[in-house]
Simulated assay, not measured.
Amino acid sequence: MTQQIIVGLIVALAALYAVWRWMPAGWRRAAAARLASGSQRAGLVDAQRAQQLAASLAKSSGCGSCDTCGSCSTPANSPAQGKHSTTAH
Rank of each mutant, 00 (worst) to 15 (best):
residue 72 C to N: 12
residue 79 P to T: 00
residue 85 S to L: 15
residue 20 W to F: 07
residue 12 A to K: 00
residue 64 G to D: 05
residue 24 P to M: 13
residue 30 A to S: 13
residue 44 L to Q: 12
residue 79 P to C: 02
residue 26 G to A: 09
residue 50 A to R: 02
residue 45 V to E: 04
residue 64 G to S: 08
residue 55 A to Q: 14
residue 7 V to M: 03
residue 73 S to I: 01
residue 22 W to Y: 15
residue 69 C to Y: 09
residue 59 K to N: 02
residue 44 L to M: 12
residue 12 A to Y: 01
residue 62 G to C: 10
residue 9 L to K: 07
residue 17 Y to A: 08
residue 58 A to Y: 01
residue 33 A to G: 08
residue 24 P to H: 09
residue 58 A to C: 03
residue 2 T to L: 11
residue 44 L to A: 15
residue 5 I to R: 00
residue 57 L to D: 09
residue 51 Q to V: 03
residue 42 A to H: 07
residue 23 M to Y: 02
residue 31 A to R: 03
residue 37 S to A: 07
residue 88 A to C: 05
residue 62 G to Q: 06
residue 6 I to A: 06
residue 18 A to I: 03
residue 23 M to D: 01
residue 83 K to W: 14
residue 37 S to P: 01
residue 85 S to Q: 04
residue 80 A to D: 07
residue 76 A to C: 10
residue 57 L to Q: 14
residue 57 L to Y: 02
residue 27 W to V: 15
residue 54 A to N: 01
residue 89 H to E: 09
residue 66 C to T: 14
residue 58 A to H: 05
residue 48 Q to F: 05
residue 76 A to L: 13
residue 55 A to M: 06
residue 30 A to H: 13
residue 34 R to I: 06
residue 49 R to Y: 12
residue 44 L to W: 10
residue 69 C to A: 07
residue 55 A to N: 06
residue 42 A to R: 15
residue 49 R to N: 12
residue 68 T to D: 05
residue 10 I to F: 11
residue 12 A to G: 04
residue 61 S to N: 07
residue 84 H to P: 00
residue 58 A to F: 02
residue 50 A to I: 02
residue 17 Y to E: 01
residue 28 R to E: 03
residue 16 L to E: 07
residue 50 A to W: 00
residue 51 Q to S: 00
residue 64 G to Y: 13
residue 32 A to L: 08
residue 40 Q to C: 01
residue 20 W to T: 03
residue 65 S to E: 07
residue 38 G to Y: 14
residue 61 S to T: 13
residue 7 V to R: 01
residue 8 G to C: 00
residue 54 A to Y: 00
